[in-house]
């Protein structure tokens, strides 16, 4: 199973993650850490002037190949999406996006970014101190 997990598609995202970094004044931000493995991922989103569509998204932090690749793939899905559609993304959507066989422990890794995204859009608005991340 290990080698199915570490497909080139996954490793590409791990080595050169998409939308990796931070935004200056995000409208939303949220963070999730997995204390078991020390992973920590932060999602930041900026809306367009209508405040209904995602204009920009970035993620930051550190984690294993699965959590980083999953977060990277997820960011690609978000830009340009109506906020309402982003709110509807489910964990199954994310697991389908990642599309690799995962043991229960590693499913958590694949969902770390998704949980951070959930915190961002459902939780409190962006914290005043992004340097904290």
């Amino acid at each position: 199973m290990a080698y199915d997990m570490y497909q080139e598609r996954i490793l590409q995202h791990y080595r050169t993650p998409k939308n990796f970094g931070k935004l200056d004044h995000p409208d939303f931000s949220g963070e999730e850490s997995n204390p078991l493995c020390g992973d920590r991922i932060r999602f930041e989103l900026k809306l367009d002037p209508s405040k209904s569509t995602v204009a920009e998204v970035r993620f930051s932090g550190e984690g294993c190949a699965i959590s980083m690749a999953s977060a990277s793939m997820l960011t690609q899905k978000l830009a340009g999406q109506p906020l309402a559609a982003v709110e509807k993304i489910s964990r199954d959507d994310v697991l389908q996006l990642v599309a690799i066989p995962l043991s229960p422990v590693r499913v958590k890794c694949a969902l770390t970014g998704f949980t951070a995204l959930g915190r961002a859009i459902h939780g409190a608005p962006a914290s005043a101190d992004p340097a904290q991340a």
């Binding site: 997990m5 078991l36 493995c37 992973d39 984690g63 294993c64 190949a65 699965i66 590693r106």
Partner: peptide, 22 residues
């Protein structure tokens, strides 16, 4: 460049049980 959990997952595939984490 490789997270410990990724190391341990690949090692498991080879029949090796090591610990990874904090």
């Amino acid at each position: 460049g490789v997270h410990p959990h990724d190391v341990a997952t690949i090692l498991d595939r080879e029949g090796l049980a090591i610990r990874s984490g904090h």
